[in-house]
Design a protein around this nucleic acid. Structure first.
Lengths: 364, 364
DNA sequence: CTGAAAGCGCTTACAG
DNA sequence: CTGAAAGCGCTTACAG
């Protein structure tokens, strides 16, 4: 590999060495371009000798396609998101797209972040774990850049989103806990600004209502370990201690279980049942064994990629909200109901009890 | 905001609207460029009206600086890496740099990944969690792109790296366990190709040797939950069951603890002590409370950023390997020694026992 | 199939 | 301080 300077070689240098035009070099690296085998192989030889790689930046400029997708994922502490990120990495790599990651941001102003994203002329934007979702989505819409909200929705129509069926999931958990004989229900809420949190809570309350029960006592955990622990303390200090706690995600359910066991010396599920949402890795660890509603990450990522790619192909494609279902996976953090359990693929699922009423969206 | 077409406005359009030259527009967006306040404010007004943002792609092409850093992080399952990623995001954003993330890759060939990275003409590369480190580092070196290995080293001199002092950490754990009266030592190894794993093991063995003890029994866990569980089973099935297990990282220590408790019905640390490495979030969860050596993530990230930026400024800067120390944090997963414990910042640390010999690098 | 040429949207000497 | 112009490294009609 011969290199005359420290700068990477250009298509002109390859052209000179191969004895062809610069256009021929470009065509050799463009799948489907009209070029003879003989020319292409001369070019490829020269390219190899020089260590040439097409400059994606220059290509982006002329084609107005960067093949870069911005992913905004402010917080990675909840293991759901790292898993999601890996899956996005895999899928987009297979399509020849790359990920520009915006993480570790404090939730202040959305404008600077958005400016950065737009300056790189990304082909699409995925908004996952961020308090900025709504504001950013708004700006993307105005700028005409394809955007998909992942694991959240916004009131604004015209914005694509992919979520699991949080309302139904909350309802399933309510019926599961009622069927297991619990009587005093509590909910540890996530961020108030999160649609996912609101839907889970609404579904939970609707599920209880359908069974003739009042809404749960609510304490706010804001998806944070510290705040969820504090919320648990507040709940456990009540005169009428709850016997079933639904934490808006597994990450907070872990904090709740730890707090109940280590600070109150009580047993989970002996004294109080705790259920979560997501089915992240630690939910499966024997120390927690959380009964939870699974979010089908692979499926959700696949749908998101599909929505983004369709809108990159054709920007006028109408907005769409995809909702995918998730199973209630029964483990050991909550007392179990006498019936309705089914084993599938080595996992115990709760499919419901026909004796119990099913809440509907209209109950919301 | 007026927009005539769907394409974002260019500096020419801003120039026309502001009644100045295109150069003036460019200068208005270049900090330190020579431009009058009057002209700049005319330009800024026009830019705001049109929704103009400089095209970073075009800028990159002409300046030969993309302000993009590639981060290769194949696996995010170990929570250390998401935390590291967030910190990189924060620090590079503050410097006006962006992260192109390569994750979710299977460890096959390094070439395709490297090709992708190079096509975007990134200004620097950080190689963190990947089996491809050595091969990729080699290619970066050949291509003259600044590269820093994070949490690993390569035999090759000339490659920058940032690690914690894994050898010393392994030694500290050995002395800690010896001082606590353990006699039968085991090591659950990470990937054989990982320098971090090798250093921890070497330090552990050297620490034991300095106390006149033989090397630990070794089973390989390859940093995987499944394999670490299998390794634990193999260790616990031995006639002379170990009374102290050092898992090469916390992620595997968790699997070991779960396996010992749930499959063997034994107590940690009552029947067997388990120690780890990293001090990731779950190590602090009461259910595990892992005694572990902390990796000072913020410090390691800061050093990495410093190394990368210095080499972006001046490519001829000589390679450097930075090693930062980490404390042994004492929690409840291992029996404690009678002395040498000190409380600092609300954490219990093991500072060593002067009665015990300290292993040295030369013992390796 | 091939090459000469225009142009993507900027930055930056250069001359005034 | 300002503008005209060259040029970054490509893609892609256009003409042959």
């Amino acid at each position: 590999m011969i290199r005359n300077s420290s700068a990477p070689p250009t298509s002109w240098e390859v052209a000179r060495r191969a004895g062809v035009s610069q256009s021929a070099v470009s065509r050799s690296f463009t799948p489907g371009a009209s070029i003879s085998d003989a020319t292409r192989s001369k070019v490829m030889d020269a390219a190899r000798e020089l260590g040439y790689r097409p400059n994606a930046i220059a290509r982006s400029l002329i084609t107005a396609r960067s093949r870069i997708i911005a992913v905004v994922m402010a917080y990675l502490e909840n293991l759901l998101y790292p898993r999601v990120l890996e899956e996005f990495g895999r899928r987009f790599a297979a399509l020849g797209y790359h990920l520009l990651l915006f993480t570790g941001l404090k939730d202040r102003d959305s404008d600077p972040v958005f400016d950065q994203i737009m300056q790189y002329r990304v082909d699409g934007i995925i908004l996952a774990s961020t308090g900025l979702s709504s504001a950013l989505a708004e700006e993307c819409l105005a700028a005409g850049v394809p955007v998909v909200l992942f694991n959240r929705t916004t009131g604004r129509p015209g914005v694509c989103s992919v979520t699991s069926d949080n309302f139904a999931g909350g309802g399933k958990l309510a019926r599961f806990l009622v069927a297991s004989g619990h009587r005093r229900f509590a909910y540890i809420a996530g961020l108030a600004s999160s649609s996912t949190n609101r839907d889970r809570q609404a579904g939970f309350a609707a599920g209880l209502a359908a069974c003739g029960l009042p809404p749960p006592v609510v304490q706010v955990g804001n998806y944070s370990t510290q705040e969820a622990a504090a919320a648990t303390r507040a709940l456990m200090a009540r005169p009428a201690r709850p016997d079933a706690i639904f934490a808006a995600n597994d990450h907070m359910a872990i904090a709740a279980i730890d707090t109940i066991r280590s600070e109150f010396g009580l047993s989970v599920p002996g004294d109080v049942s705790v259920v979560g949402y997501d089915d992240v890795g630690p939910a499966r660890w024997p120390a927690y064994a959380i009964t939870t509603v699974a979010q089908p990450v692979d499926r959700m990522v696949a749908e998101t990629v599909e929505l983004i790619m369709a809108r990159i192909e054709d920007r006028s494609t109408a907005a769409e909200s995809r909702v995918v279902g998730g199973d209630l996976i029964v483990r050991a953090s909550a007392r179990r109901p006498p019936r309705g359990l089914v084993e599938r693929d080595g996992q115990l699922l709760y499919l419901g009890d026909t004796a119990l009423p099913e809440p509907r969206e209209t109950d919301r």
